[in-house]
Amino acid sequence: MSTESDYGIPVREIGSELVEKLSGLMAFVVTGIFLVPIGLLLVTSVKSRTEIFTNPLALPAEFQFENYANAWTTGGFGQYFLNSVIVVGISLVFILLLSSLAAYALVQFDFPADNFMLVFFLAGFMIPPQVLLVPLYTIMNALNLLNTYYSLIFAYIAFGLPFSVFLLRQFFVTIPDTYAEAARMDGCNELQVFFRVYLPLSMPALAAVAIYQFVFLWNEFLYAIIFITDDTLRTLPAGLMAFQGQYSGDWAQLAAGIVIAVTPTVIFFLLFQRQFMRGISMGTTKG
């Protein structure tokens, strides 16, 4: 195969072939490790309550699809799902809008605080949400926002801004200035340039940001359990936790709830894997 083999020492060749085979095998074994718990989850979700104890590894004797129906209705997952859609949906729209506006300002205008503002937004990178737990709770409490959708939405937008501003700014610099100039010649004001030229051109970057943030927000747990105390307002991760408290001995029911909770991000990921990967590589190699 390789050019070296012409001069090759046979032992070495066999050795490298063996390494190649073994490493290929390893890649598959690892795939197995990643997939087995997921498969187990799916199987458990259609078992009956007692089968879990009597036959932990076996397939169910009869598929109990009513586990899903029960989780959705009596388990309250219908409501949790709706809450998640509302909170995550609103947060996403605002993250995209606010960060692209800010990124546009950073790229298109020269102003004295230009560099400062960039650093100011990037500094947010250095503050993980976990650190802000106590003060943010205090602020939400003072503003009387605890136990409302707003508390989560405001926090989520704030957490999402630094990365999104950074990524979109990276993308905006690659858009040639001539496009904006041409639009301005045609009488567009800045807002129109932004909405008619930059946004349409930035769809790939916006998609990358949206997908990345969607996965993060849909799965966010810490703030979801602290800010929301009313069961009817809980998002899925917090709802799942409450559900476990209630049904924790009933693993089949819980597994069905878990499948409902994770399905949206998995589907989203499978549909938009390319954009997702793109987001990742934009975030690393250019940072």
């Binding site: 929301i228 105390t229 009313d230």
Partner: peptide, 19 residues
């Protein structure tokens, strides 16, 4: 109405306010 566990923080929040 509230659920059992989160109730104590909910009521603590509410008692601090005019509501």
């Amino acid at each position: 109405k509230y659920e059992n566990t989160p109730y104590k923080s909910a009521i603590s929040n509410a008692l601090g306010t005019s509501e």
